[in-house]
C-alpha cells in the first residue's frame, strides 16, 4: 500500500513537473529565438512574458475544436492522445536526482526504475510516429497525408541509427537501467575528470542528430514544414487537439534532452557538498541545468539551419549515420573487451 502511495505521489509530481517545464520551454524558445533574430518575443503576459504559454494554452482550450467532414473520426480523435501519452510515459524512467533517504527508507527520484529502461525509452519514442502518421492519414486532406508519409520515411531512417547509437553506452556501462547508467558515470578519471559517457563521442553525435529527427525539430522538421506542406500532419487540427500535439512536441523535446544528459552527461552527477537537504537538491539542479543546456542547443540550431529535404534525410540516415554507428559499435566492443579481459596477448 505504501509503495502504491509513493508511486502515485511521484507520478503526480512528474506530471506537474512536465507541464511546468513545457510552459517554460515554449517561452524560452520564443524568447531565445527572438533574441537571435533581433526581436523581443513575448513580453506582455506576466513578468518577461513568461505567462505567454499559459495564455496561448487557455486560448486554445476555449477555441472550438473543429472536425472536418472527411475525417476518419475515431483515429482523428485518438491521434492527439496517442501523441501525448508516449511523451508522458518516457519521463517516468528518467532519474532527475540522487536517491534520497528519509526515515531509513530510500526513495529514488524517478517514478520507476525499469531494468530495461533503454529499450522502454526507444519503444516509447517510436510510438510517437504512429500518432503523426495516423493524424495525417485520418485528416482526409492532402497536405497532412504528405506529412504523414514523410514522417514514416523519416522514422525508418533515423530510428535504427538512434538505437545503434545507444548500444556502446549499454556495453560501456553494463546496464540498460537508466538509474544504473547514471550511477556508472559517477566515477572520475585521474581524480577530477568526470567519467561521463561523452567519451563515446561518435555515439553522442549520432544520437543528437537522430534526436533532432525524433522530435521533428529543425533542421528535420519536414513533417510539419510550414513553407512546404502548410502544417503537415496537424493542418486539420484546431483548438485543444492541436494543443495536445503542441504539448507532446515540447514534452518530447524536454525528454530527449533529459535522455541525452542521462546517457552522455552523467545525469544528475556533479560535485555534492553541504548539509543533507542541499545534497538532495544539488543533483536535481545539475540535472536540470544540463538538460536546459541541451534544450538551448535545440533552439540554437533551429534559429540557424535551413531545413533538409526528406530524401536527403533518408540518405543521410542510411548512408552516414548507420554505417558510422555500426563501425563505432565494433570499436567500442573491442575497447570494452580489452577493459574487461585485458589485451589478448597479455
Amino acid at each position: 500500500m505504501e509503495d502504491f502511495i509513493v508511486a502515485a505521489v511521484k507520478t503526480v509530481i512528474a506530471f506537474a513537473l512536465l507541464f511546468t517545464v513545457v510552459l517554460i520551454l515554449v517561452w524560452a524558445e520564443r524568447r531565445i529565438v527572438a533574441f537571435m533574430q533581433n526581436r523581443l518575443g513575448p513580453t506582455r503576459a506576466g513578468p518577461l512574458g513568461i505567462l505567454q504559454t499559459l495564455a496561448d494554452g487557455l486560448k486554445l482550450i476555449f477555441k472550438e475544436s473543429m472536425t472536418p467532414d472527411r475525417v476518419e473520426v475515431w483515429l482523428y480523435l485518438a491521434a492527439p492522445i496517442m501523441a501525448l501519452v508516449p511523451a508522458l510515459l518516457i519521463f517516468l524512467v528518467v532519474p532527475i536526482g540522487a536517491p534520497i533517504t528519509i526515515g531509513g527508507t530510500e526513495y529514488t527520484l524517478q517514478v520507476t526504475d525499469l531494468n530495461v529502461g533503454v529499450l522502454y525509452v526507444l519503444a516509447m519514442s517510436s510510438m510517437a510516429v504512429y500518432a503523426i502518421a495516423l493524424a495525417g492519414w485520418s485528416s482526409g486532406s492532402k497536405y497532412p497525408l504528405i506529412g504523414s508519409v514523410r514522417s514514416a520515411a523519416q522514422m525508418i531512417s533515423y530510428e535504427a541509427a538512434m538505437g545503434l547509437a545507444l548500444v556502446p553506452v549499454i556495453m560501456f556501462n553494463g546496464t540498460t537501467s537508466l538509474a544504473g547508467i547514471v550511477e556508472a558515470q559517477g566515477a572520475t578519471y585521474f581524480g577530477f575528470l568526470p567519467a561521463w559517457n561523452i567519451v563515446l563521442l561518435p555515439s553522442f553525435v549520432v544520437f543528437v542528430i537522430a534526436m533532432f529527427a525524433e522530435t521533428n525539430r529543425a533542421p528535420f522538421d519536414l513533417v510539419e514544414a510550414e513553407q512546404e506542406i502548410v502544417g503537415g500532419f496537424h493542418t486539420e487540427y484546431s483548438g485543444f487537439r492541436f494543443a495536445l500535439f503542441f504539448l507532446a512536441e515540447y514534452i518530447n523535446l524536454f525528454n530527449m534532452s533529459a535522455l541525452t544528459v542521462v546517457f552522455f552527461f552523467g545525469g544528475w552527477q556533479g560535485p555534492v557538498f553541504g548539509p543533507t537537504v542541499v545534497q538532495w537538491i544539488l543533483p536535481v539542479i545539475y540535472f536540470f541545468a544540463k538538460t536546459f543546456a541541451i534544450v538551448f542547443l535545440f533552439i540554437w540550431v533551429r534559429g540557424t539551419l535551413p531545413r533538409l529535404r526528406y530524401d536527403q534525410l533518408m540518405s543521410f540516415g542510411w548512408k552516414r549515420l548507420i554505417p558510422v554507428s555500426l563501425a563505432w559499435i565494433i570499436l567500442a566492443m573491442i575497447a570494452v573487451g580489452i577493459r574487461r579481459f585485458g589485451l589478448p596477448w597479455a
Binding site: 533574430q37 533581433n38 529543425a218 522538421d221 513553407q227 534559429g303 540557424t304 531545413r307
Partner: peptide
Amino acid sequence: IGALSMMI
C-alpha cells in the same frame, strides 16, 4: 528553405 532567422 527553413532558415527562419534569415528572414529577420
